[in-house]
Design a binder for these strands. Structure first.
Lengths: 169, 169
DNA sequence: ATTGATATGTTATTCTATTACCCGTAACAA
DNA sequence: TTGTTACGGGTAATAGAATAACATATCAAT
């Protein structure tokens, strides 16, 4: 419990403060429901990794996650973390941030999907942003080259609203 | 000398066949000129790493590059390759492909700049595509969230024109 | 009960990247 | 000439990220 519990509604885009506790519980519940629906097993390790990612709202390396799991007796070797992360990313419950070799929980878990990310270099927060506009632009660029896109990596590093105030640069 | 020397003009976007030998020499010459201009040292290791990247037209891992350098007696330990790559990427002569932990030569060397990449999962070719449209779209998305972009990672994996014919899927 | 599919435990290894320290040389000032 | 400063490179050691390979367990379905 490291957050401030500001009782504001969740922002669709992501950097606003919000009821973090409810945000975690709600997302886990939504994921659990989807798993039940689709016959996927949200096992204790998988659920816990999802909670760890949600609790931070930032990207975590596999070994940071593993440290937590180890402290809690849920697993001690890399494959434990990587397997859980593979499950979560494969089903669209978490995303890999390529630019950081790290992982973040998905904020609107659905099918396996690409996303765009806004990564704050000030506080480390990661927000998932609508992917369509940028993806569409990239599609048009690719089409001109006769290239067929299967997967996109769209990430932006910079300063979130809070940090751009504190770092007036 | 492993290419076919098809004497076609270089395609601005990148997957067309072209006079590869001239393409390498021309780019190295352009980079050398820029270095002379700006007082940068294009040392033997740095030049050779650039040539290696250009010769492949695909993304190479630092250790693949190091293997070549080692064979040629130009260096044997990781920092040799990483230092050269840092120089090349810092000055916009090469780019890091985040999604692959690999590096590719820049096809229009200028100042340090972001770019968009089309990465063929069939043949491994990497083309640098215009970054502006996708970047602008991402800018608009970020603006809506009050986020200030400093750097973008825009990569698309898929099939290039040649491979989408061979892999009719 | 047995099978088959899925999930986990564990060891070892590979791949990627950086830190730290030392050496040599070019450029320039005293 | 002698510092001394900056830069590039050589090397060893280590850190960080990811996977391979193999053993074990769990559980549902026949």
């Amino acid at each position: 419990m490291t957050d401030t519990h500001a009782p504001r509604p969740t922002d669709a885009i992501g950097f606003a403060s919000h009821d973090h506790h409810a945000c975690i519980e709600g997302t886990v519940a939504a994921v659990a429901a989807r798993c039940a629906d689709e016959g996927l097993h949200l096992t204790p390790v998988r659920r816990r990794v999802l909670e760890i990612l949600l609790a931070r709202h930032r990207a975590l390396g596999a070994y940071e996650i593993l440290d937590v799991l180890r402290d809690e007796g849920l697993g001690s070797q890399p494959p434990v973390a990587y397997r859980a992360l593979e499950f979560l990313t494969k089903h669209g419950f978490a995303h890999r941030i390529e630019g950081m070799n790290a992982f973040a929980a998905c904020t609107h878990p659905g099918q396996d999907h690409d996303a765009a990310f806004l990564i704050c270099t000030g506080c480390g927060a990661v927000a998932e942003a609508p992917v369509e506009p940028a993806r569409a632009a990239l599609e048009r660029t690719a089409e001109a080259a006769g290239f067929t896109i299967a997967r996109t990596v769209l990430e932006a590093e910079g300063l979130c609203p809070n940090c751009s105030q504190s770092h007036p640069s």
